[in-house]
């Protein structure tokens, strides 16, 4: 199920503004890849180009190549809607659909696309996804209650359940824990560990310890100078990046020395 992503020579623009310059990297299947780097260096921007979500922003465009296994997702024939059902996304701020119950939120992917499925199958999918997101025990008695009535951490896990219920092969997460307490964060990190058996996971985080804890590989982005585009500085095994970074910039960032 999990697929590899190969990026080569990717530039991302907002109108005339070059936000991310010339990124090439390989994201391995069944592993967790963390993106770290200072604020504004283009991590979110780059992440959103991996499932063509950047196209939602007026004026945003990407040049270069992104291969999902062997398929170029920027190919002329490729439908961005299908790309997104293959590459799911979890956002920084939990965003359950306010008009839907917990149950409906989980199977929103199917419901919104009008996929008919028998009740028993839907029930199974909801339970499986909620169990997968470590949320089942907490909500199994109130599946018909609104999703927005859950706590922030629960809502975020609900969003993860919703994203996994459409069975994507890749899951992109943009700072999924930045609004959560340490316990909920831990719950989600455990979840990421579990999910990586089936998915390719990419996570953006500002939390070094989190990157070190959950990821197998780490990519460090930085701005060459203020106002200049963001760049991929180096990428490697998480262990190596945190203990023996090749670039001085990476070392400075990780140890908290700037400039």
């Amino acid at each position: 199920m999990a697929k590899r992503i190969d990026v080569s020579g990717l530039h991302v623009y907002y109108g005339d503004f070059l936000a991310v310059e010339d990124v090439s990297m390989t994201i391995e299947p069944r592993s967790v890849t963390a993106f770290i780097g200072s604020s504004g260096c283009g991590k979110s921007t780059f992440l959103r180009t991996l499932n063509r979500m950047h196209e939602v922003t007026p004026g945003a465009r990407a040049e270069g190549k992104v291969l999902l296994d062997d398929l170029d997702i920027y190919g002329a024939e490729v439908d961005p809607v299908l790309v997104r059902s293959e590459i799911g996304m979890v956002f920084q701020k939990a965003n359950p659909f306010p008009t839907m119950s917990i149950y409906d939120n989980v199977i929103a992917g199917a419901r919104l696309n009008n996929k008919r499925m028998p009740k028993s199958e839907a029930d199974d999918l909801v339970e499986e996804s909620l169990r997968g997101a470590n949320l089942w025990e907490e909500v199994k008695d109130r599946l018909d209650k609104p999703g927005s009535g859950l706590s922030g951490g629960q809502q975020q896990r609900l969003c993860i359940a919703r994203a996994t219920a459409v069975k994507p092969s890749v899951l992109l997460m943009d700072e999924p824990c930045s609004a959560l307490d340490p316990i909920s964060t831990l719950a989600i990190e455990d979840l990421i560990h579990k999910l990586k058996e089936d998915y390719t996971i990419v996570i953006v985080t500002h939390n070094m310890q989190q990157a070190a804890r959950v990821s197998d590989r780490t990519a460090f982005f930085n701005l060459s100078a203020p106002g200049k585009p963001g760049k991929l500085i180096e990428m490697g095994e998480t262990n190596q990046i945190f203990t023996r970074p090749e670039k001085k910039e990476t070392e400075n960032y990780i140890t908290g020395r700037f400039g």
Partner: peptide, 21 residues
């Protein structure tokens, strides 16, 4: 905008996102 993006991220087309979300 979050809600629209949440819907797109599930592989839902724009028109369905508008009608159903």
């Amino acid at each position: 905008q979050d809600l629209r993006e949440a819907s797109y991220a599930l592989g839902v087309p724009k028109w369905r996102t508008i009608v159903k979300v």
